[in-house]
């Protein structure tokens, strides 16, 4: 009972903060946090796939598909935002199926290599299909997001949309992780053969985890497209793909909040360094230190600190009775 209360309290505090941010944050932080939420969706959506032991280094490709599809549907065909967002996510899922289905035979690093190659393929298609995507000129004139016919023209409105999308995504993913499905994913990730001998259809479950990730990456991409309102093929390249992966590892793989903490921490990390040419250097050092000294990710930091304190007090010299 005590535990639940603590969790609940923590969540309530965070929710209130998130709801109130536009009141005291100003337009700039509203903008930054909307992007942070997008990153949280991306990071969390990669988790099921990673849990199954699939090393996906190409998640940004699906974000790109979601972004371009939603933007083009809304821009060229005047499709309402809700539908274009869903359309983008569904196309990302479909492409995920097409790529995931045949590559399920591939394990570990081979699968990782397919996803690396896939990022480049999607980037090149976005770059070369000029009549549709405007290629390297960048796709502009993307309408702002709207809900039930109401355009969210302010940053604050768009921020709340991002918040809702993130919470919905997290809720779905959390529910799934704590269902039988999540159990199966974990068992697949830990030992393929064991799960198979228990009669689990590994291929189907891996594919499901992968496609689920693609769907939510598509959602994140769709929101990004209507928020930034300018799409440029190199944005969804290898850098973003590795960032999504890194959020998971820096945050920690051990718990559902890992990718969330990783995405929030790394997305905000660069803010204090803005304007400094050393931003990326600090960023990479923080990344490296986390991997080396917190193998379980940032979520293990409180425990590590607690251990450290315990160790200090335990090893403190005790006064000798002889003195």
């Amino acid at each position: 009972m005590h535990r639940r209360l603590g969790v609940l309290l923590g969540l309530v505090v965070l929710a209130v903060l998130a709801l109130l941010l536009p009141q005291f944050g100003g337009d700039y932080y509203v903008h930054i946090f909307a992007l942070v939420f997008t990153n949280v969706i991306l990071a969390a959506s990669l988790r099921p796939s990673l849990t199954c032991g699939q090393l996906n280094i190409g998640h940004s490709a699906f974000m790109s598909i979601g972004a371009y599809t939603s933007a083009l549907l809304a821009k060229n065909l005047a499709v309402p935002f809700e539908i274009s967002l869903l359309g983008g996510a569904l196309l990302a899922t479909a492409v995920g199926w097409a790529i995931g289905y045949p590559s399920l035979r591939l394990r570990g690093v081979y699968f990782a290599m397919v996803t690396v190659a896939f990022v480049e393929v999607i980037r090149l298609i976005a770059q070369l299909w000029v009549p549709l995507t405007r290629g390297m000129s960048g796709l502009s004139g993307i309408p702002k997001p709207s809900v039930l016919g109401m355009t969210l023209s302010t940053r604050t409105g768009q921020y709340y949309l991002a918040l809702v999308l993130m919470l919905a995504t997290l809720l779905v993913l959390w529910k799934l992780e704590h269902s039988r499905l999540g159990l199966i994913w974990r068992s697949i990730g830990m030992a393929d053969h064991l799960a198979q001998s228990l009669g689990v259809n590994i291929a189907r479950h891996k594919l499901l985890a992968f496609m689920l990730g693609c769907f939510f990456a598509g959602i994140a991409g769709g929101f990004y497209a209507h928020f930034i309102r300018f799409l440029f093929p190199p944005e969804f390249g290898f850098l973003m793909a590795t960032n999504i992966l890194v959020y998971n590892y820096v945050g920690g793989r051990g718990h559902f909040v890992g990718p969330i903490v990783g995405a929030v921490f790394l997305s905000l990390l660069s803010e204090p360094f803005r304007g400094s040419p050393y931003e990326t250097i600090f960023f990479s050092i923080a990344m490296l230190l986390t991997i080396l000294f917190l193998p379980g990710g940032l979520i293990t930091l409180p425990r590590k600190l607690a251990e450290l304190r315990w160790w200090r007090t335990a090893s403190a010299p005790t006064p000798s009775p002889a003195a």
């Binding site: 990673l50 090393l55 280094i57 990782a112 590795t242 992966l245 890194v246 590892y249 820096v250 990479s284 050092i285 990344m287 490296l288 991997i291 080396l292 193998p295």
Partner: peptide, 9 residues
């Protein structure tokens, strides 16, 4: 996987 992330960093 952690090696990969460390090498990326």
């Amino acid at each position: 996987e952690p090696t990969l992330v460390a090498l990326i960093a």
